[in-house]
Amino acid sequence: MQQPLGYVKCDSNGTPFVCHLKKALYRLRQALRAWFEKLKQFLISIGFVGSNFDASLFVRIKSGSTFYVLVYVDDIIITRSLTIVIDWFVRLLNDKFLLKDMGDLHYFLGIEVTHSSESQHLCQKKYIRDILDQCSMTDAKSVHTLMVSSSTMSKDDGECLEDPIEYRSLAGELQYVILTQPDIAYAVNRVCQFMHNPTTVYMVALKRSCSICMALLSLGFFFVHLLDCLWLDMSMPTGTKYRSLAGATNEVTWLLSLFQELQVKSDDTPIVWCDNSSAVAVAANPMLNSKFKHVELDMFFVREKVADGSVLVGEVPTCDQVADVFTKPLSVTSFTRFRNLLQVFPVGKMGEC
């Protein structure tokens, strides 16, 4: 780092000195890492333990009190089982760092949080409105489904956009909306496959996703309820389906480990629903090994999880396959039905869940 003009000091050989920083400067590449390490050491010094399953999560469990701290750069969410512990922690944090207490959590990284007596509910109403303003669609008509179920799309459809920046920016912003609106995942991921050379046809499809966001806004706030089961759709050969089943089981295992670390217990065993009877049979029956010699051995850990009771694997009829929302365009009836089964509801219906 060069010395400022007008104040240049040199050694006896005329070589300019360099600055020795006492702390990382804002916007330097190493600043974020240095800040996180400093905050981490402080949290550890007062009894927190870094999570083994989420690097940004810190947990403190003492004397029957459970305390969680979630860190995103310099934005921090804290929650606890005892209110008095919050006040103690904020005072300690304020003595060590300059902070601004924003009070109860209402808005964080584009996600709005509303509170009820039993839980918190997430939505991105403001974030969606900003997207609609950005693409001049605040007065657009809403649609009920993201894609026409009979449509087929090709990379050669339509004319190439002269400036693809708007398309790519809008697609990226809609990817973030999927956090609280998983029902738009298929359409958004479909149009994202053509980011390198978007056409006018795909811009229309992308803005259709914005139109259904308009429909979501008309319903008010939404929340996503964490299910005790996972729906898996695999329209592919059985061996590949079993690999997908293993991947889904891996995600469930990670969630269970995280919940255990958070001292959160569930009386229900997670269920992975699959619409392929062969994959379900292989997960439960080791005698079928001879037919799956081409599948890597590490994929068969699903059987271990089923055997020890950590996870259940069940078969679901194709007509009831909720994961179709993520894999194909659907009719209005099917789309609405599966979205409700995903537990994505307006706040007004929360009591019915």
Results as ranks from 00 to 15, higher is better:
Val332Gly: 01
Thr238Trp: 00
Val347Gln: 14
Asp87Ala: 14
Ser277Cys: 10
Asn94Met: 13
Gly220Met: 08
Thr79Gly: 05
Ser169Ile: 12
Ala307Glu: 11
Pro346Ala: 14
Arg243Lys: 04
Asp324Thr: 10
Glu315Ile: 04
Leu258Gly: 11
Cys210Trp: 02
Arg33Leu: 05
Ala215Arg: 15
Tyr202Arg: 01
Val302Asn: 03
Pro182Thr: 12
Ile111Trp: 03
Lys100Ala: 05
Leu262Ala: 02
Leu99Phe: 04
Gln124Asn: 08
Glu118Gln: 12
Leu43Ser: 09
Lys291Arg: 15
Val113Trp: 06
Leu341Ala: 07
Leu21Val: 00
Gln343Asn: 13
Gly6Thr: 01
Asn340Thr: 12
Val302Phe: 01
Gln263Pro: 00
Met350Glu: 15
Thr66Tyr: 10
Leu105Ile: 04
Glu261Phe: 04
Lys38Leu: 08
Glu173Trp: 02
Phe48Leu: 09
Ser154Glu: 14
Leu146Ala: 15
Leu93Ala: 11
Val71Trp: 02
Met147His: 05
Met236Asn: 02
Asn197Trp: 01
Val282Glu: 00
Glu118Thr: 15
Ser150Tyr: 02
Leu219Ser: 14
Asp87Val: 13
Phe89Cys: 12
Val302Thr: 04
Thr83Arg: 07
Thr336Trp: 03
Asp308Gln: 07
Phe292Ile: 05
Phe301Lys: 01
Pro237Gln: 07
Arg339Glu: 09
Leu105Asn: 07
Ala24Glu: 12
Ile184Ser: 10
Ala185Lys: 08
Ser65Arg: 03
Gly6Met: 01
Thr83Val: 10
Gln343Ala: 15
Thr269Ala: 07
Asp157Arg: 04
Ala246Glu: 01
Tyr127Phe: 12
Pro346Glu: 14
Ile44Lys: 11
Cys319Asn: 08
Thr238Leu: 00
Ala24Asn: 09
Ser151Asp: 14
Gly314Asp: 14
Cys160Glu: 13
Tyr202Phe: 09
Ala187Tyr: 04
Ile76Trp: 03
Cys319His: 07
Leu217Gly: 09
Asn285Gly: 03
Ile178Lys: 06
Gln260Asn: 10
Gly247Lys: 00
Ile78Pro: 00
Ile178Arg: 09
Leu92Ile: 02
Asn276Pro: 04
Ala279Thr: 10
Ser277Gly: 05
Leu179Arg: 06
Ser117Glu: 15
